[in-house]
Nucleic acid binder design. Structure first.
Lengths: 227, 227
DNA sequence: CACACAATTTGACCATGTTCAAGAATAACG
DNA sequence: CGTTATTCTTGAACATGGTCAAATTGTGTG
């Protein structure tokens, strides 16, 4: 057995092959209409082989969701290395996911399927996806890391931007405009607005508002207490 | 056959009976673990009888969602008749759904199951639920109708408040605090904040911001153009 | 009542996600 | 090389959501 990190043992290859076949079929025919038998057929293995590598059909989507996150990290890392401009960095982070899922809209919808079921492993707000969520917010934190920000904003903004991204992602799925242009424009506009609010939030007049909002979110356990 | 609106023909009774049994089982055991056979057994009919009245298991949830909306309308109508105080009216509208679903949290999660799939009949943002959505926003419009509001805000606010309610409803499902107290407090706090922003939005200083936000949402087709 | 027609109810059947015990291939080790 | 443990692969079987044509019940009409 390899001790180094060559990622392609025999099994890894089969798994990856099944994964690719599944995504192809999902993209062409949608998630529900694609049967596990279809996937097995295309991958030229037995149905149970698919279950050996993925505990369920939805687990394939979870794997897709993870790979999506990794791809986003690559894209962002490239941009972060290239520019120090805050707006560009944030914009790249925000829309990178749109570009990645452009042709996977049928697929991606399934990621939201268990939003309302806290204990489900694929709940996009639950424990099973906590790690993905963390990595996604870290990207926003990195986009912001060159700025001097008050501590509370520094804590709040990545989460807020992640929420914005998730919301826009849902809208992206419903957007019938060419290339989802409408959602992309809204993303750009929301970002402008956020940046404007960021500077505005520092004004003394708005200090009480800002404090109020933050304490509200803290009480709701949406952001952790400062230590 | 009755021409008047007595709602209980033989069939209506069976349907209603199946519906009640299904909800009982869903509440006790959850949606997925409850089988159509279980429902039929408890209702003392054949499985196919259940399918005669509901085209699918999920259709039962859709019926639940509709009945929920009707119940909310009753609750709100009572409050609206009783008080002209804006905050009270809005607060009642906002939290009435929490009270109604307090013991149906397992159930309600399924309503969000197709959020990411625009064409699914049970998508809570899709066509199949458009009527429910309309009725829900109308309630907020009614809560506001005693106020003198600029036209654009009058158009925007019901939708914004509905979104807030949907978001809080999801949080409600994840909230493990006793009686979902945390979410209720966040609801109250958000409402305070919204009211504060409503008055703030009228200040001349913020006019451009307000215009910007509105035009952004119009371009995104989230609110209709003014006619 | 007798008949036609609509509403309801049923059991048998199908498709598909998932499980499982057992067999084949591969790696580990003396 | 031979033996053993591990990884992989398989076909058969199961559970459940959903379909359907036929049977049964009800309901109005001559």
């Amino acid at each position: 057995m390899f001790k180094n990190n060559v990622p392609t043992t025999k099994g890894e290859q089969t798994r990856s092959h099944i994964f690719d076949c599944a995504l192809d079929l999902f993209r062409d025919n949608g998630f529900d209409p694609t049967t596990m038998q279809d996937i097995a057929n295309r991958a030229e293995v037995a149905k149970s082989a698919a279950y050996y590598y993925f505990p369920s059909k939805e687990a394939i989507i979870q794997a897709y969701y993870e790979s999506l996150q990794s791809q986003q990290e690559s894209l962002c890392a490239a941009v972060f290395a290239e520019t120090k401009d805050l707006k560009k960095r944030l914009h790249a982070t925000l829309i990178s996911k749109f570009d990645l899922v452009q042709h996977d809209r049928k697929l991606l919808g399934v990621v939201f399927r268990y939003t309302g079921e806290p204990t489900h492993p694929l709940s996009c707000l639950g424990k099973g996806t906590a790690e993905i969520r963390r990595r996604a917010t870290v990207l926003f934190a990195q986009a912001l890391e060159l700025e001097r920000l008050p501590q509370d904003l520094q804590q709040l903004l990545p989460l807020a931007l992640w929420s914005l991204q998730m919301g826009l992602l849902v809208m992206f799925l419903y957007d019938s405009s060419l290339g989802q242009k409408r959602t992309r424009q809204l993303a750009a506009g929301s970002l402008d607005f956020t940046l404007k609010m960021m500077t505005l939030a520092r004004l003394p007049v708005l200090k009480p508002v800002r404090t109020k909002v933050l304490s509200l979110l803290r009480e709701a356990d949406l952001i952790p207490e400062l230590n």
